[in-house]
Design a protein around this nucleic acid. Structure first.
Lengths: 300, 300
DNA sequence: TTGCTCCTCACGTCACGTGAGGTGGC
DNA sequence: TTGCTCCTCACGTCACGTGAGGTGGC
């Protein structure tokens, strides 16, 4: 009742709990963890301001969405949305894993042996490990993209010795690759451009590429005009001065110098037959493209 | 090395850990929890038999699939698959919830306010609560069916006072409804018949019913023969002596006497506009059916 | 005796829940 | 003084991880 006053708007923990739907204990816990620091009166009572309540509401939502307490601070003080994007992709990885596990539960019910399931589980865990590391190794948009791109090819377990070795090689490459960091202004640029790029859109991109790879010649014919425009744009000074050009260059340098083509890609081919097939298609499409446009020596 | 002998095949904890991929601590923990009781030597050392190892492997798989330790015992000693089915549905409920949460994370990234999300989260939690209780209230197949059937209609939050009251009424009904237990032989029968009925098939059933409800007259025309056969089967003595008949009768009695039609269904209509629409369609379809077959006074 | 395994406490983790015991305000 | 809130320990949860300290076998 004392808090109906709209101007003062500060309250003790009971009122804060009622307004946010959190328990007192949860609120004190968040205070202990440093997520918020309400002012205290002389008697030690906490006084929660309007902003504290807003913060508590945000914390409550994030907790319910599954964000760990020690991951909340970055999200709250994050204006670019980068932290949220990372969470979003991690959530997607987790969901894929759970989906796969549900499928295994079905198989178990259908009479599969525990032994079969062990293999399948290993594949699921490996997949998640690699995805996690891809997300770490590449900044912002590229992390999300590679993560979803390569995840498709990691659904089978590493059965043979060679596959297991390849898997270890992949992990090692991703853990030890030189850190790829864009200069701050390029980071901001990329973040701005790509922040509205959802996981679904990335999936669409991937599906598109698959269409292309199936019939590269047809694709090149059908999109002749667009390709021409893109090629002439790439020649232009405007492009060469744009941040996109610099980002592309940094990526190319990284891939050339880090051992991406010498270690990572061959290991992927060894580990995953489906990736090997994909890589072959990619090379064929590239060849078709070079035939059509002999002056280009691009790679993707 | 000492354990290469195929006949003796018993080992201490280190070897057991190597063979199962579990840690020693995990194994001792499962022993403490009573999931297995390896024999012990005089010096207190545990001796793991072949069966112990099999059990540990099973436990390992189940743990990785997300089954809690205190839920594992029923699964291990469950020959009918009932325990696994329950887990499977719970997993499906959980996945739906996580999926919804991922969607909310996307909305948050897209600039949604925490306030909007609070409402949406409430809906998700409510949905899961009701689903959980439906699974509890109805035995085996019916639990799974009702769970997935009604879950579709609970995606919106309870906004108005009336909706919130309806939600409370639903929870109260499900918590306090008289326990619906089939006699053991009917349970076994149902379990046998329905154990291979996956969540996907239930979803298919639901989709089928939706088709029917859209154009009941067409459906009745198209499936004239099948309906006739079904109706004459229902009249037959063979049907009246079958367990199916008894199960149906028990379900009908339960629904008539428990307040299902007086409390639960009206509350669902109040809470969920989409369920209200569905119920209307259902009544229309029923009417169409009765017009066609005036002697039947069935309800579904 | 040395180095190895095995054993059983005991404490830590994560995000709070649940009292217990004490103080402050009216 | 009574009944209320607030405060800070302290212990419990779940499924183990991580030593510590002690025993047994070769």
């Amino acid at each position: 009742m004392a808090y109906d006053n709209h101007e003062v708007m500060s309250m003790q923990i009971h009122e804060a709990a009622v307004r946010t739907g959190l328990t007192k204990k949860a609120i004190t816990y968040y205070c202990e963890q440093g997520l918020l620091s309400p002012s205290t009166l002389e008697n030690g009572y906490r006084e929660f301001s309007r902003q504290d309540i807003d913060k508590l509401n945000a914390i409550s939502v994030l907790r319910k969405l599954g964000v760990a307490v020690n991951e909340i601070q970055p999200v709250l003080s994050d204006s670019t949305g980068e932290a949220l994007q990372r969470l979003s992709v991690r959530m997607e990885i987790k969901l894929q894993r759970e989906q796969a596990k549900k499928e295994l539960l079905r198989k178990l019910r259908a009479g599969a042996s525990y032994k079969e399931l062990q293999k399948a589980l290993e594949a699921i865990e490996n997949n998640a490990e690699v995805a996690q590391r891809l997300l770490q190794a590449f900044p912002s948009f590229y992390g999300r993209f590679f993560c979803l791109h390569f995840a498709r090819f990691l659904q089978q377990p590493a059965v043979t010795e060679r596959q297991q070795a390849a898997y270890r090689q992949i992990i090692e490459f991703l853990d030890n690759a030189p850190e790829l960091q864009f200069p701050i202004e390029l980071q901001d640029y990329l973040q701005n451009i790509m922040q509205d790029f959802s996981e679904e859109q990335i999936h669409d991109m991937i599906a598109n590429t698959q269409e292309l790879l199936k019939q590269p010649d047809k694709y090149i014919r059908d999109h002749h005009d667009a390709i021409e425009r893109y090629r002439s744009f790439k020649q232009s000074g405007a492009y060469r001065r744009s941040p996109v050009f610099q980002i592309q260059k940094l990526m190319k340098d990284f891939m050339a110098s880090s051992g991406y083509y010498e270690n990572f890609i061959p290991a992927m081919k060894e580990l995953s037959p489906s990736y090997a097939a994909y890589a072959k298609q990619l090379e064929a499409a590239n060849a078709a493209f070079v035939t059509q446009y002999p002056d280009s020596a691009s790679q993707d």
